[in-house]
Design a protein around this nucleic acid. Structure first.
Length: 317
DNA sequence: TCCCAGGGAGGAT
DNA sequence: ATCCTCCATGGG
C-alpha cells in the first residue's frame, strides 16, 4: 500500500488544510530559534532539511502556498542514492517536525479567554508551532550549544559540527549534504579540536563527554524520553553542560514534552514584566510558574512569549 | 572597550 | 535556597 521512494524517484506531496488543526506559518516555525536542530536552509520561499528516517537520509524541500490560515504545503522529498523509504513515513515525519497535529486553534481560543497577557503575543505570531526532532542526539547537542549563546552562533556551530564530523550524503538531484554526526563520531574527538574547528567554546567538553556516555551505554536517551517529565529532568540534570534550561529545551523541542518551558534570559525578562509586575523572580520559579499556569501548553506559551520578547514587541525590563 | 547571547558549575553566604 | 564568578566565542 505504501509507496516506496527511492533515490531515483523524487516525488511531491500535498498536505491539505483538512489534515491540520489551525494555522501554520512555516517561516515563523523555521526562524524561531528552536533547538531541535539548526535552522532549515532557506532558498527563496522554500526551506530544506535533511533527516535520517529508519537509517535512510531524506532531503525535504518545503514551501508554503497561501497565508497562515488558508494554505497548502508543497513538499519535495528525495532519498539518498542508496536509500528507500515509504511515502507515509516521510509524510508522518514532516507532520511531526512541524507540529502539525497540535491544535493551535484550541490554544488560541483557550488562552484568548483565560490569559489576556499571553493572547497579546498571538496576533503577530499566528501559525507559529513547536518543532520536533526526528532523533534525540541532535537536539541534545543543539540544546547544549545554546547555553549562554546567541541563536545565530549556536546555529553556526551546529552547521560546522555537521560539516566537519557528519557523514556526507549524495542525493539524486546532484546535491550533497552533511548529516548531523552520530554520538560515535563525536565521542572520539579531542574536545580541544572540536572547540577549535566549530567555535563551540567551553561547550566542547560536555558535548564530547555526553557523546561518550551514549556510546558506552551510560546514557540511553530512548528510555529517558519514555519517563515522566520530572524523572526525565532529574536524569538530564546529571549530565555535564545540562542545566534546567537546556534540559527543558531538549525535552520540548527534541522529545515533545509540551509541559516543558525553557527559561532563558528573554523568558525571564518577559515573564517578570508581564506576570510579576516587573519584580525579579528566580529562573526555577519562572519555569514552575509557566508549567503550573499553562500545563500541557507551557511549551507553547513559552515559545510565543520568547518570540514576542525577542522580536522587540516589548523592551527589556 | 564593554556588554550581551535561548546558562552551567562550583563555591560562598 | 540564593548569590557570586568564571567559563569561550563572536556580534553590536
Amino acid at each position: 500500500m505504501a509507496t516506496l521512494l527511492t533515490g531515483t524517484q523524487p516525488f511531491r506531496l500535498q498536505i491539505p488544510n483538512t489534515d491540520l488543526k489551525g494555522p501554520l506559518s512555516l517561516r515563523e516555525n523555521i526562524s524561531s530559534g528552536q533547538t531541535s536542530k539548526p535552522e532549515w536552509l532557506r532558498d527563496g520561499e522554500s526551506f530544506t532539511t535533511v533527516e535520517v528516517l529508519d537509517g535512510t537520509p531524506v532531503k525535504y524541500t518545503v514551501s508554503q502556498l497561501g497565508d497562515a490560515d488558508n494554505f497548502s504545503l508543497v513538499v519535495s522529498a528525495i532519498t539518498s542514492d542508496v536509500g528507500e523509504i515509504s511515502a507515509d513515513r516521510t509524510k508522518e515525519a514532516l507532520v511531526q517536525m512541524l507540529g502539525l497535529r497540535d491544535d493551535l486553534d484550541l490554544f488560541y481560543r483557550k488562552f484568548t479567554q483565560e490569559d489576556h497577557l499571553l493572547s497579546l503575543t498571538f496576533k503577530n505570531l499566528r501559525g507559529l508551532r513547536l518543532m520536533r526532532a526526528t532523533n534525540l542526539f541532535e537536539p541534545l547537542i543543539c540544546s547544549i550549544l545554546s547555553q549562554n549563546n546567541s541563536v545565530r552562533l549556536w546555529n553556526r556551530s551546529a552547521r560546522l559540527i555537521m560539516k566537519h564530523y557528519g557523514r556526507k550524503v549524495s542525493f539524486p538531484d546532484g546535491s550533497q549534504e552533511f548529516l548531523f554526526p552520530t554520538p560515535d563520531a563525536l565521542s572520539s574527538l579531542n574536545p580541544r579540536s572540536l572547540r577549535s574547528t566549530t567555535s563551540t567554546g567551553y561547550r566542547a567538553k560536555p558535548i564530547v563527554t555526553v557523546s561518550r556516555m551514549i556510546v558506552r551505554g551510560e546514557l540511553d536517551l530512548g528510555s529517558l524520553v519514555r519517563k515522566p517529565y520530572e524523572d526525565a529532568v532529574d536524569l538530564l540534570l546529571q549530565l555535564p553542560g545540562v542545566g534546567p534550561k537546556v534540559a527543558d529545551c531538549f525535552l520540548l523541542y527534541g522529545a515533545g514534552y509540551t509541559q516543558a518551558a525553557p527559561v532563558d534570559v528573554w523568558i525571564h525578562r518577559i515573564v517578570s514584566k508581564l506576570y510579576f509586575d516587573g519584580k525579579r523572580v528566580s529562573r526555577l520559579k519562572t519555569a514552575r510558574f509557566l508549567r503550573d499556569r499553562f500545563r500541557e501548553w507551557a511549551g507553547y506559551a513559552q515559545l510565543y512569549l520568547f518570540d514576542y520578547a525577542r522580536t522587540g514587541s516589548v523592551r527589556a525590563g
